[in-house]
Design a binder for these strands. Structure first.
Length: 113
DNA sequence: CCGTTGACGTCGG
DNA sequence: ACCGACGCCAACG
């Protein structure tokens, strides 16, 4: 296989984000093995050409929308089309729709998968 | 090795 | 809640 670059791992992670859920640049960075490379992840997303990947499901920390090649309006509509609720520049119920967050000690019963 | 480039994150005011 | 400052990083020439 071609080289195992950070960029490749990032794209692999992005491809696993479920419909109707979102993740953040920071989480992607962590899942790709470099917890502090969130910024680099952003650069990779901007350059990425691989079709079919849910780039719009990767947003910024705290539920902020982040960017989308200058077409943030499109990103917002894509998210809304998947059932997410976007209020202003934030995704509502972020904590409940975020994917890839560190598994916090749940008192009992899973909440996400 | 160095400088550049940002779809970032966190903190302080 | 908004904004600025600063830190952090991969990829490339």
């Amino acid at each position: 296989m071609a080289r195992d670059t950070f960029a490749r791992r990032v794209l692999a992670v992005v491809s696993r984000v479920p419909v109707g859920r979102v993740t953040t640049y920071g989480h992607v960075a962590r899942l790709a093995g470099k917890p502090r490379a969130a910024r680099a992840v952003g650069n990779i997303m901007r350059e990425a050409q691989v079709p079919g990947l849910p780039y719009h499901r990767v947003i910024a920390a705290g539920g902020a929308l982040g960017g989308y090649g200058g077409n943030i309006a499109l990103k917002r509509s894509l998210l809304v089309a998947e059932g997410l609720v976007v209020s202003g520049r934030r995704v509502r119920n972020f904590a409940q729709v975020v994917w890839g967050a560190p598994a916090v000690k749940r008192a009992h019963r899973r909440t996400a998968r």
